[in-house]
């Protein structure tokens, strides 16, 4: 696939300083690259910022979606590496939110030399409780989510009627875009939800050889602090910061603190 192919497939947007270190922002399950809208402009002052949508989300090319490829996190990690390769990125500071944290872990294990740092924002390597491990959810909980996606989308489909328009990356147009940041084809959302909430990447953590910051929130129903402790303990030499923030999306609920934590760690990259 050529450059324009990968760019269009993942709706890649590059902003910021051309000569700055590369910060790649990768969104999680639910919405799209707009999740970074409150911190990307500030990061762009010092860094070259690479934003993209995972295939199936936002304004990615839905025709590129394949169930086999995107039924596991490896497919998403392949996409991250393809974007890096096609844009000829190196020394990348990869910031992965939620499930993208593990996507970044998988990518960094495969091509460690591509990455300068990993910043894992509200990460969880395993959402389901297991012998002696607390992920915060039971199998039944996740089954309930997957089942409720089916009925919830009946409600969502009306709310998320596709809004066709040009530039979702321009925040000034935000008001016209009712709910479109998070619109997802229900079939695609189901497959992504399964890949997200049924994966187990605990054994991958110890294989990370890239300097890593575990950045989580004090009150997060999806990735509670014990999970952050676990990730920090498993990744050799990782740093840890817990933001005084509530919710699973600190880049929206506490953008300034999140921005500062990312910028401070990224500026130590060599």
């Amino acid at each position: 696939m050529d450059i324009s192919g990968v760019r269009a497939r993942n709706n890649v947007v590059v902003t910021g300083r051309d000569d700055g270190p590369v910060v790649m922002l990768s969104h999680g399950f639910g919405c799209d690259q707009n999740m970074w809208r409150l911190i990307a402009p500030d990061l762009a002052r010092d860094f070259r910022v690479v934003l993209f949508d995972h295939v199936g989300a936002g304004r990615s090319d839905l025709s590129a979606w394949r169930r086999e490829r995107y039924a596991s996190l490896d497919g998403y990690a392949d996409d991250v590496l393809e974007i890096c390769r096609e844009l000829d990125l190196s020394r990348v500071v990869f910031v992965g939110h939620s499930v993208s944290a593990m996507i970044g872990v998988l990518a960094a294990i495969r091509e460690p030399n591509r990455f300068a740092q990993l910043i894992l924002l509200a990460p969880s390597p395993r959402y389901i409780d297991d012998d002696g491990y607390r992920g915060g959810f039971s199998h039944a909980d996740i089954d309930e989510l997957l089942q409720s996606l089916e009925s919830n989308y009946l409600g969502w489909s009306a709310a998320m009627a596709p809004v066709i328009m040009g530039n979702p990356d321009r925040p000034e147009l935000g008001e016209e875009l009712t709910n479109s940041f998070c619109r997802t084809d229900p079939d695609i959302a189901r497959v992504f939800a399964r890949a997200t909430f049924l994966s187990d990447n605990r054994d991958d953590l110890a294989r990370v050889r890239v300097p890593t910051l575990v950045l989580d929130c004090r009150h997060d129903a999806i990735a509670p602090p014990e999970v952050g402790d676990f990730v920090h303990a498993q990744i050799p030499g990782s740093a840890r910061r817990t933001l005084a923030a509530t919710g699973h999306c600190p880049q929206l609920s506490a953008p300034q603190a999140t921005l500062e934590a990312i910028a401070a760690f990224a500026s130590t990259a060599r």
């Binding site: 399950f29 639910g30 989510l145 940041f181 919710g247 999306c249």
Partner: peptide, 8 residues
Amino acid sequence: YHETHFAP
């Protein structure tokens, strides 16, 4: 759902 869609 709330954390990943509604709140954002």
